[in-house]
Design a protein around this nucleic acid. Sequence first.
DNA 1: TGACAATATGCAATTATCTCAATATATAGA
DNA 2: TCTATATATTGAGATAATTGCATATTGTCA
Lengths: 116, 116
Amino acid sequence: MPEENTSPLQIDSEQIQRAADILKTVAHPARLKIIDFLEPGEQPVAQICKCLNAAQPFISHHLSLMKAKGILSSRRNGNQVFYSVANRNVIEVIHCVRRHGRGNQTCTGTAVSVRE
Amino acid sequence: MPEENTSPLQIDSEQIQRAADILKTVAHPARLKIIDFLEPGEQPVAQICKCLNAAQPFISHHLSLMKAKGILSSRRNGNQVFYSVANRNVIEVIHCVRRHGRGNQTCTGTAVSVRE
DNA sequence: TGACAATATGCAATTATCTCAATATATAGA
DNA sequence: TCTATATATTGAGATAATTGCATATTGTCA
């Protein structure tokens, strides 16, 4: 019988699962915007709503999704709840997105390129 | 009327859209595995099927999804089709996932951390 | 051309995601 | 306690993603 390369992957299946889960949560326009907005520092929900120009329940929903995945954390101060980015890997992803957006991408020019 | 911070985002909306689209495509266990497998160099479809231990139509479907987004590119050589990673940003993401997986993460220890 | 190997496509059923609207909860201050 | 403000939760309808299976396409070789 021929010996075969059953799993020449560099990442194990469980880690892949977790990563996919985190990335799936990040991979949404509103949620990316929230992360982008929060990256410099914590903000209360109302500010996030204003920044994204979106309804409060809509924002709250996405915030709690990300909090559940450990991407964001929150702290209450009186009436308000302040959210911040809790996962540094996600910040790496946002940085990557920013680099790409600025045309500073190391990208070789694929379908994702900005030229129209 | 109060002047407001309508969009203090560092990334513009269109770029966010594109990034979300790419990330959404990447954010799937099978597709992450494929990218992980292809990152060192191109591979024919049959090898990818064997590596992921998955049915060929299943793999083919995910390959064409990623190709459509410019994440992968393909070249035919006779009977076989070789796929490779075409988008360097996606490679950055895979590197980030690997760093995270190895416990080498710059992560501060959130719900995503590996310790159990 | 005919048969075989490698890959791609189409269909269908299940399941998950998105988003709005209504409403609930929590805190502060009078 | 009553009211107002800030945030969270729930329900529902629409849309999209997933995946197995059957089948089509493409290329090779005899």
